[in-house]
């Protein structure tokens, strides 16, 4: 087992700084998620760890080993199965490259296939499998040679929404079972929050914040992280030269809070109410400034809210974040 040390890593494509001076230390056995919008450099960073992309500057250390003996396995977004090989020959490919004896290869393929319960597909070709089955074959091929680090590039992106939930659960169980370091790239915050031990939020080649899902959600370091995470994103309201941030789920009608809670109240002009079953989204503006804010009311808040009305909404003081209006950086108060 090994962690990954990344120091001052940069990758330039012409004028574009795809990855810009990234320092990151990935701990042994942790599930680390690289999260960011498309083009933020997360995939380039992963490809450099894999050795598919040569860094412009900086260093990567994997368990202290040189790149050739990296001991990594990668699962691609398209799964990249070898279309002309059966499932079993797909899984055995990395072992053949290692030059293992056939008996050992067969035994390992069987072990890995049983782990992902795809043993009955071993003689089929990738084109005969469904998306979910292909994804498991790809994981199987990654697992079979017992790598130190797994690199996963949006492995769930090609699955339909229903399958994605089960696959996410399987993935997490698998990682707990094999106890290996996993670096996982996604742009889907639900995947990131649900899977990651820690999340690295990236934007324009730079790491914005590294932390547990709880930390990056509850304690964002700047407005980018604050608004990138959360569905709907954090509300930002300009107030006396600073930006005041609060999550939609903390923004509720005053009547809903207890009497002894410290509150910041806002008069909300309700523009529209969206009924979504488990939640209601209330769109409106505060302080007449016109900035749209969203309140996310769980079904348990039964207060009647009429479109076009003015209502008193509030946020608990503890849930407020302050940001610098110019730089977007968090201000601790």
């Amino acid at each position: 087992m090994a962690g990954v040390e990344i120091r001052h890593l940069s990758k330039r494509f012409g004028q574009l700084h795809a990855v810009d001076d990234v320092d990151l230390s990935i701990r042994e056995g942790e599930f680390l998620v690289l999260l960011g919008p498309s083009g933020c450099g997360k995939t380039t960073l992963l490809r450099m760890i894999a050795g598919l992309e040569r860094p412009t500057a900086g260093e990567i250390h994997i368990g202290g080993a040189p790149p050739r003996a990296r001991g990594i396995a990668m699962v691609f977004q398209s799964y990249a199965l070898y279309p002309h090989r059966t499932v079993s020959r797909n899984i055995s490919f990395p072992l053949e490259a290692l030059g293992l004896p056939r008996a050992v290869i067969e035994q390992k393929v069987r072990w890995a296939a049983e782990m992902f319960s795809i043993a009955r597909y071993l003689d089929r070709y990738p084109r005969q499998l469904s998306g979910g089955e292909r994804q498991r074959v790809a994981l199987c091929r990654a697992l079979v040679r017992d790598p130190k680090v797994f690199l996963l590039d949006e492995p769930l992106a090609n699955l339909d929404a229903k399958l994605r939930n089960t696959a996410r659960d399987e993935l997490k169980r698998f990682q707990r079972q094999v106890k290996r370091t996993v670096v996982y790239v996604t742009h889907d915050q639900v995947e990131a929050m649900g899977l990651g031990d820690r999340i690295v939020v990236m934007d324009r080649g730079k790491v914005r914040q590294v932390g547990t899902p709880h930390e990056v959600y509850e304690d964002p370091v700047d407005t980018f992280v604050a608004t990138f995470l959360g569905q709907p994103p954090m509300n930002l309201v300009e107030l006396q030269g600073a930006l005041l941030g609060f999550r939609p789920e903390h923004f509720l009608p005053v009547a809903h809070f207890g009497a002894n809670e410290a509150l910041r109240t806002f008069p909300l002009s309700v523009r529209r109410v969206e009924y979504l079953g488990s939640d209601r989204y209330v769109y409106g503006s505060v302080g007449g400034a016109g900035a749209t804010v969203i309140a996310k009311l769980p079904a348990t808040v039964a207060t009647e809210i009429a479109e076009g009305s003015d209502m008193e909404f509030a946020v608990p003081e503890r849930a407020l974040c302050y940001f610098d209006a110019a730089t977007g950086a968090r201000q601790r108060r």
């Binding site: 598919l52 396995a73 990668m74 691609f76 990249a80 070898y82 990395p94 290692l98 040679r145």
Partner: peptide, 13 residues
């Protein structure tokens, strides 16, 4: 597909 070739590289071929 480029990814298939890259998969082979990462697989140690």
């Amino acid at each position: 597909p480029q990814e298939v070739v890259e998969a082979a590289i990462v697989d140690g071929a």
